[in-house]
């Protein structure tokens, strides 16, 4: 990809990272106060989506764009399912919903970008993948 494409995606990644950093720190603060924190209960199948991200990235790397878009769409679809199944009983669930929904928006944008720009949008897609691993880690392990 061109320098412009790479730098542009890098800068976009910085902005998105700040968004997720803000959500994460808000969550960390909230978790530390109140003493009523309940980690959201993630259904076991969600961990399957962990693989979707690296698979999609590998497909992009191999320029198998249609397949990558399918994997990406699968990820977004599964995020929708997760969102509708969250009981939203606690503040932990609410934060989970916010981060998952934000990620889904980024993933959907990533799929569209792959469709429009092809492999040139690969850097952003790799970021989306790493970010999903981060979100899962935050709620599955740390929260």
């Amino acid at each position: 990809m061109t320098n412009v494409a790479r730098t542009g995606q890098t800068v976009l990644i910085v902005a998105s990272s700040m968004l997720f950093a803000a959500f994460t720190s808000a969550m960390a603060v909230r978790r530390a106060m109140g003493g009523d924190w309940q980690a959201p209960a993630l259904p076991a199948w969600v961990w399957g989506t962990l693989l979707l991200a690296p698979i999609a990235s590998w497909l992009v790397h191999r320029e198998r764009l249609k397949a990558a878009m399918v994997a990406g769409s699968l990820l977004v679809a599964s995020q929708f399912v997760l969102l509708t199944n969250l009981t939203m009983a606690s503040i932990g669930d609410a934060f989970c919903a916010v981060l998952v929904a934000s990620h889904a928006a980024h993933a959907a944008a990533g799929v569209l970008a792959l469709g429009r720009f092809g492999a040139r949008a690969g850097l952003f897609w790799h970021f989306v993948g790493v970010l999903w691993i981060y979100v899962l880690f935050v709620f599955g392990a740390w929260a």
């Binding site: 910085v14 902005a15 998105s16 968004l19 803000a22």
Partner: peptide
């Protein structure tokens, strides 16, 4: 870049 992202969150 850094600031507006946080306002979006808030």
């Amino acid at each position: 870049l850094f600031a507006f992202a946080v306002l979006v969150a808030g």
